[in-house]
């Protein structure tokens, strides 16, 4: 795949003897995709991102934009941007200085663009980061990052701790003003429901292993959710659902690799949401 932005093969990483963060992770991210990397706490998401960003050593093969992040981090960062967490802009940094700084060190920074994004917010140039609200800090960070013409943007829980309005605005700005089908975005979040509509691909990780790697468009052909009750539940169980749970007295089953047609007779059929799959896969890969 010549258009691959990230090619990971058998990534392994453990902290100490016991804690395995990455246990043979392989995946490919194509250009122009918006990939959601999701998993419970401690699943290995952040370690995977850190590996991609050259922030942590690991074993295995990893190619990001044609470079090995372990050895070629300095040149890689010309083309990759990331927001690691809302709290990383230092308190003493003035808004105007933050812009000057990025303009000074980043050859692909477009100051006018950052100014335009900031002009839509209530952030004042003379303010220091320490004087801004958490939501404003994220807006500032996003304004800086969006003005950089990067090929890959990595977002690690970018909206953590923000209220719903800021979270919405964050993703809307990102999608409307930044994403252009040439760029690639890799995002991790706990708020699966909020971003599933903007994703093109989903990667689920648990216990350091990839448990689902799928394009959103392929989900309907791969997964079926069946809502059944009464007798048909036993019939459904015999078809090997990957997950089931009780919903208001009925049972929701998730099937992988079954035709919708063969299940339709047993109850209501629909395509499970990413959140449903997340729950199903996490339960399925537990222990």
């Amino acid at each position: 795949m010549t258009d691959a932005v990230i090619v990971a093969k058998d990534l392994r990483k453990h902290y100490g003897k016991q804690a395995v963060a990455l246990d043979g992770v392989s995946f490919t991210v194509g250009r122009g995709r918006i990939v959601g990397l999701m998993g419970p706490n401690g699943a290995g998401k952040t370690t995977a991102l850190k590996a991609i960003l050259g922030l942590t050593p690991f074993e295995g093969h990893l190619d990001v934009l044609g470079r090995d992040p372990r050895r070629e981090r300095d040149s890689l960062m010309q083309d990759v941007c990331f927001i690691a967490d809302v709290a990383v802009l230092p308190k003493w940094l003035r808004v105007s200085d933050a812009i000057d700084y990025v303009a000074g060190v980043h050859p692909r920074f477009d100051r006018a663009r950052a100014d335009a994004v900031l002009a839509r917010t209530e952030i004042r140039r003379r303010s220091k980061v320490g004087e801004l609200s958490k939501g404003m800090i994220t807006q500032l960070h996003l304004a800086l990052i969006m003005a950089i013409d990067a090929k890959l943007l990595v977002l690690d829980e970018p909206t953590l701790g923000l209220d719903l309005l800021y979270r919405r605005a964050f993703y809307e700005t990102l999608l409307n003003d930044y994403f252009d089908h040439e760029r690639t975005i890799l995002v991790t979040t706990h708020q699966v429901e909020e971003i599933e509509n903007l994703l093109t691909d989903v990667l689920l990780i648990n216990h350091g292993r990839i448990v689902l790697d799928a394009a959103i468009d392929d989900l309907p052909s791969r997964f079926v959710q069946l809502i059944a009750n009464g007798e048909s539940r036993e019939a459904a169980r015999r078809l090997g659902p990957i997950y089931e749970r009780e919903v208001f007295g009925r049972t929701a089953f998730v099937f992988e690799g079954r035709e919708a047609a063969e299940l339709a007779a047993l109850g209501e059929i629909r395509t499970p949401s990413v959140a449903d799959l997340f729950v199903a896969k996490m339960a399925g890969s537990a222990s």
């Binding site: 922030l55 300095d74 960062m77 990383v88 960070h141």
Partner: peptide, 14 residues
Amino acid sequence: KDRSILFWKSMPVS
């Protein structure tokens, strides 16, 4: 200490 290192490291500065 203030975790700003992740911001500095997100820039192309060795």
